[in-house]
Amino acid sequence: MVRLITHNMLTCHVRNCTKDNFPLVFSDVELVVREAPENLDFIRRFLPKLDWAALVDTARSLGDESLPGTQPEEFTDEQLRALHHVLMEMHVEEGKMTCRGCGHIYHISNGIPNMLLAEHEVGR
């Protein structure tokens, strides 16, 4: 499944696409929420690896408004729980991720994003 924690790590890598290549924009999404056991300590440890603005935009695009627009300096447990839900429990099973820079569309099928590019599209 594409969870938002993993989506936050994915960048368009089409050749010469270097601008607005992150975050990829979801569309035609089949969203499934699956409860996951809470580990707020893990969420806290993962914070430095997150791009907050991208996460908030993406969560809101999927209808979740629970995260504050600017990253809190100190998280309350309630805020960490909201973050746990957004990162770990929202699964995009089917849909598309589109690059805002070059327009390339990556398809998600059975929860697996296909980010393999054809040879002529490959940059780095």
Binding site: M9, N21, M115, V122
Partner: peptide, 21 residues
């Protein structure tokens, strides 16, 4: 267990973001 999958060559779509992470 939970493993998140990405179909790709090596880890190309992850490279810019994982930046020493």
């Amino acid at each position: 267990v939970t493993v998140d999958l990405v179909q790709c060559n090596l880890l190309k779509p992850l490279l810019p973001r994982v930046d020493r992470g």
